[in-house]
């Protein structure tokens, strides 16, 4: 009984986080600082007509290692779209004391993974919770009008070792870049839990 009471209390506390943002909904604006001290504001990218990709990130999660170290899924995907007004932001919402937290750890990850895009630090988890980010990785695509166009997994293989046959994120981006609706706008993300 105690467990249930605790669970329900916990759920109540977590309520605002549960909504998340679904495809078609407005993306919450944020301003976060990256590992070299630069500020990034979502709205300013959108006002410049950019499509923004958000990748929830934790350098010590095995699924992030799968896509950033064992394979270069994210770097290669970014290389395919970076010339087409696409901005890619990795966001780390690990709280202090949790896995993947900290400026130095993420500076090292940027270097080790040879990341061509910035890692933004969100130690309070405010941005992660506002998006309903649940896993690392968890991908979002936002169109210049501020609408979420894709929410979900990077690809269709949720194992920790094998890459998927379909890269859902790239498929969504290709749809958008050809001025089409995103055919698959939502999938189930997979990975480690975000360490709020």
């Amino acid at each position: 009984m105690k467990f249930l009471s605790f669970t329900l209390l916990f759920c109540a506390l977590s309520m605002p986080a549960l909504a998340g943002v679904l495809p078609g909904e407005e993306a919450p604006d944020f301003t976060l600082t990256d590992t070299v001290g630069n500020e990034h504001q979502l709205d300013s990218y959108l006002q410049d007509g950019k499509i923004v990709v958000l990748e929830w990130f934790n350098p010590d999660c095995p699924f992030i290692v799968k896509h950033h170290k064992k394979n270069k899924t994210m770097n290669e995907a970014y290389a395919k779209v970076k010339e087409q007004d696409v901005v890619w932001l990795a966001i780390n919402s690990s709280a202090k004391g949790k896995q993947g937290y900290g400026l130095e750890r993420n500076q090292k990850a940027v270097k080790d993974f040879e990341m061509p895009f910035p890692v933004l630090l969100d130690p309070t988890g405010e941005v992660g919770l506002s998006y309903g980010a649940k896993t690392t990785p968890h991908m979002f695509v936002i169109t210049p009008d501020g609408t979420v166009a894709y929410n979900g997994a990077i690809d269709d293989n949720s194992s920790v070792a094998t890459l998927g046959k379909t890269n859902h994120l790239l498929a969504a981006l290709h749809n958008l870049l050809q001025d089409n609706d995103v055919k698959i706008a939502e999938t189930k993300p997979y990975g480690c839990s975000v360490k709020y």
């Binding site: 669970t7 916990f10 759920c11 977590s14 986080a17 549960l18 998340g20 988890g125 992660g128 919770l129 309903g132 980010a133 649940k134 839990s193 975000v194 709020y196």
Partner: peptide, 11 residues
């Protein structure tokens, strides 16, 4: 068992 974590994460 239900395992609820912060951020509305349920396993």
């Amino acid at each position: 068992e239900r395992h609820v974590m912060k951020g509305g994460i349920l396993d």
